[in-house]
Design a protein around this nucleic acid. Structure first.
Lengths: 109, 109
DNA sequence: CGGTATCCCAAGCGATACTG
DNA sequence: CAGTATCGCTTGGGATACCG
């Protein structure tokens, strides 16, 4: 059945960019290159463990790239890969929908 | 900062239609009206508890509607509300991205 | 600065049994 | 058929401490 294929593709997307932190991280990285500490500052609720972990996973999936500057103190920059740019459309649609849904919630509350 | 608004909207979307089962359920309901048992048949891995629970939540958020036919044996139909139709765009984009991502995974594996 | 390592907790989810 | 109820577990995530 065709819907099984649809279902699996959607699951794949959510597995790759879903979860509690990945969409948030990507919201910031889509704006440009950011250092570890900058991400941490923009997302204060996240622990360093989770930030590092999620960044690793996104890197392994080819969504973001990690650039290490061999210097002291260390400097590491994260950015969307060319491939990673393709999730922007997904984020944008989720943003648009979420925005109007928030409005709807407020109105009927 | 503008990205905080973006972030929150995306979070709202994922809170409403994310998770393990909601996107899957919606993939089927977007095709039309379905009974509880039909959904269960299409999604064999889900337990009845989770199916019922997720359907309740989607109903409360106004995404789907529940129509009970007062008869024995019981008959309950689920379908997208008019408002619920609006998530189709989100699902479609997630489908498209997931589909090409699966392909990418297969190719480099 | 940019991480790991370790331990711990709670929510989400699953299995099973039961019901109108 | 379409659910609830109960219990138990897994796993995602948090707190804290430490390191190159």
């Amino acid at each position: 059945m065709g819907d099984q294929e649809f279902k699996n593709a959607v699951k794949t997307t959510l597995k790759t960019i879903g979860g509690k932190w990945k969409p948030v991280i990507l919201c910031f990285l889509k704006e440009g290159v950011m250092r570890f500490s900058e991400l941490k500052r923009e997302i204060p609720e996240i622990t360093e463990k989770m930030l590092a972990q999620q960044l690793r996973e996104l890197e392994q999936d080819g969504i973001i790239s990690r650039k290490v500057y061999p210097q002291v103190p260390p400097k590491v920059e994260y950015s969307l890969t060319e491939y990673g740019q393709t999730i922007q459309e997904v984020l944008d649609v989720m943003y648009k929908w979420g925005r109007q849904h928030q409005k709807r919630i407020r109105e009927k509350a």
